[in-house]
């Protein structure tokens, strides 16, 4: 097979093996393209994963608009708002980390990554206090659930979805922070070059995805009919 032989020679004659090039790929470009596509497909599966819960959310919101408005008012919009800002900031620092890796500035990469992790942890701590408060108020679904509004039963469904969605999101945050810790360690070791920084880029994609999920969750959970609700309370 002359063609095969030519391809073979070409393969070996090409650039020297980058240490990060795995044996089954022909080139770093191919490896990078595969990783990128893989990550995007993974994010699609994540969208579907959250999609099941969001579908339930949508259905019950249409069925029980009153209960949704009532229960949503019980969420702490200040803490939720701060957390939104924290996550948007962390998306910025993550983007800077990717940029730094791309341009080969290791020190910057490490610093931006550490900042991103710190913001992520801030989010989780604030979330912890929000959850703890809900536990105190017994607004956690289950046999001890207490609700003094008009719609005790449907409010419990709202809180089930609140804890389901934010809990799943928080789990993704925890995974994200862990992932960044590994990437930071790799960056500190000087593993990344402008030629190959795929792990930084992929973690960045993941981190932005988790942020975007929150950007959807915040209005869906905290801002249901908020203007109308506040007016009612005012009366």
């Amino acid at each position: 097979m002359p063609n095969g032989a030519a391809a073979h020679a070409d393969h070996h004659g090409h650039h020297a093996h980058h240490p990060a090039l795995q044996h089954h790929f022909e080139s770093l470009e191919q490896q990078h393209e595969a990783s990128t596509l893989g990550m995007w497909v993974f994010l699609v599966t994540e969208v579907m994963f959250f999609g099941g819960l969001l579908m339930a959310y949508l259905l019950y919101r249409v069925w029980y608009p009153g209960a949704w408005a009532e229960a949503s008012l019980a969420l702490d919009i200040v803490l939720g708002g701060i957390n939104t800002a924290v996550l948007i900031a962390s998306s910025f620092t993550m983007a800077m980390a990717v940029r730094a890796a791309q341009t080969g500035r290791h020190q910057h990469t490490v610093r931006w990554l550490i900042l991103t992790m710190a913001l992520g942890l801030t989010f989780l701590v604030i979330k912890y206090f929000e959850y703890a408060h809900k536990f105190e108020l017994r607004e956690v679904p289950g046999p001890d659930f207490e609700w003094h509004g008009q719609f005790p039963y449907q409010a419990q469904i709202f809180f089930s979805l609140y804890f389901g969605l934010t809990g799943l999101h928080a789990l993704h945050m925890i995974i994200g922070v862990t992932l960044l810790a590994v990437i930071t360690w790799m960056a500190a070791k000087g593993r990344f070059t402008p030629e190959w920084y795929t792990p930084v880029e992929m973690s960045g994609l993941y981190w932005h995805f988790v942020d975007i999920v929150w950007i959807f969750l915040f209005p869906l959970l905290y801002l249901v009919d908020r203007a109308h609700g506040v007016a009612q309370v005012g009366v």
Partner: peptide
């Protein structure tokens, strides 16, 4: 498709374990 059934089974489990009510 598979992520949807994963989350559905998870919701069923949470419902069973914690009384979620969905």
């Amino acid at each position: 498709g598979t992520p949807v059934v994963a989350i559905t089974v998870l919701m069923m489990a949470l419902e069973r374990a914690l009384g979620f009510g969905i």
